[in-house]
Structures are given as C-alpha cells and as structure tokens.
Deep mutational scan, measured.
Amino acid sequence: MTTFKLIINGKTLKGEITIEAVDAAEAEKIFKQYANDNGIDGEWTYDDATKTFTVTE
C-alpha cells in the first residue's frame, strides 16, 4: 500500500485527506468519490513525485 494525499481547494471546503491505496488509480477513484459526495466539482491535478492529488474549484 502507498500513501496518497488529496488537497482540497474548494469554494466552501478546504483541507487535506490522506489515504492508503494500492496505486494512484485506486486513490483517484476514492478521492473523486469523496469529492462527489461532498459536492466538490473542480479541476484535478496529480503529482506522482509527491503522490498528491489536488482539486480546485
């Protein structure tokens, strides 16, 4: 398992979430479901060097 981080730069929600996932594809699926569940819709980026996803509304 690898640790992945999501940085949320939303209009109403900001913060960071860290999860353990098998790979970046699994982490992205989990993070996008979390964002969808919380009404966050924005532009996604991923930095493989730091294993960090960012979503900006």
Score class of each variant (00 low, 15 high):
Tyr34Val: 11
Lys11Pro: 04
Ala25Arg: 04
Thr3Ile: 13
Thr18Gln: 11
Asp48Gln: 09
Gly42Tyr: 04
Ile7Phe: 03
Asn38Ile: 04
Thr52Gly: 07
Lys51Pro: 01
Ala49Gly: 09
Glu43Ser: 10
Lys11His: 03
Gly10Thr: 09
Leu6Ala: 08
Ile8Leu: 08
Glu20Thr: 04
Asn38Ser: 08
Gly39Arg: 12
Ala24Phe: 14
Ala21Leu: 04
Lys51Phe: 07
Met1Asp: 10
Phe53Gln: 00
Asp37Tyr: 15
Tyr34Met: 14
Thr45Asp: 04
Thr2Val: 15
Lys11Tyr: 11
Asp23Gln: 03
Glu57Pro: 10
Phe4Arg: 00
Trp44Leu: 11
Lys32Leu: 15
Gly42Pro: 01
Thr18Phe: 07
Val55Tyr: 07
Ala27Val: 05
Asp41Trp: 06
Ile8Asp: 01
Lys29Gln: 08
Lys14Cys: 06
Gln33Tyr: 08
Ile40Leu: 14
Phe4Asp: 00
Ala35Val: 10
Thr18Pro: 04
Gln33Gly: 15
Gly10Lys: 07
Ala25Val: 13
Ala24Tyr: 12
Ile19Trp: 11
Asn9Ile: 10
Ile19Lys: 14
Thr50Val: 03
Thr3Lys: 04
Phe4His: 09
Leu6Pro: 00
Phe4Glu: 00
Phe31Trp: 12
Thr52Arg: 09
Thr2Arg: 10
Lys51Tyr: 08
Ile8Phe: 15
Ile8Asn: 03
Ile8Thr: 07
Thr3Glu: 13
Ala49Glu: 12
Ala49Met: 06
Glu20Asp: 12
Phe31Thr: 05
Ile30Met: 05
Asn36Lys: 13
Thr56Ala: 04
Asp23His: 07
Glu20Phe: 02
Lys32Glu: 15
Thr12Gly: 12
Glu16His: 14
Leu13Gln: 14
Asn36Met: 15
Ala49His: 14
Asp48Asn: 05
Thr3Tyr: 15
Val22Asn: 11
Ala35Phe: 04
Glu28Lys: 06
Lys5Gly: 05
Gly39His: 10
Gly42Ile: 09
Ala49Lys: 11
Thr56Gly: 04
Ile7Gln: 12
Ala35Ile: 03
Thr18Asp: 08
Asp41Lys: 05
Lys11Met: 04
Leu6Asn: 01
Thr54Val: 06
Thr2Ala: 07
Asp48Leu: 06
Asn9Pro: 04
Ile19Leu: 05
Ile7Glu: 07
Gln33Ile: 13
Glu16Ala: 12
Tyr46Lys: 13
Glu20Asn: 04
Asp41Pro: 11
Asp41Val: 15
Asp37His: 10
Glu28Pro: 00
Met1Ser: 13
Leu13Phe: 12
Thr50Gln: 05
Lys14Gln: 03
Phe53Met: 12
Val55Ser: 04
Ile8Ser: 04
Ile40Thr: 05
Leu13Gly: 10
Asp48Phe: 06
Lys51Ser: 08
Gly39Ile: 13
Ile7Asp: 06
Gly15Thr: 07
Thr45Ala: 03
Asp47Phe: 06
Glu16Lys: 04
Val55Ala: 03
Asp48Lys: 02
Phe53Glu: 00
Gly39Lys: 06
Asp47His: 06
Ile17Ser: 09
Thr3Met: 10
Ile17Arg: 03
Ile8Val: 13
Glu43Leu: 13
Ala35Trp: 06
Gly39Met: 15
Asn36Gln: 13
Tyr46Ala: 01
Glu28Tyr: 09
Thr18Asn: 09
Thr56Leu: 14
Asp47Ile: 09
Lys29Asn: 04
Gly42Val: 03
Ile40Gln: 07
Trp44Asn: 00
Thr54Gln: 04
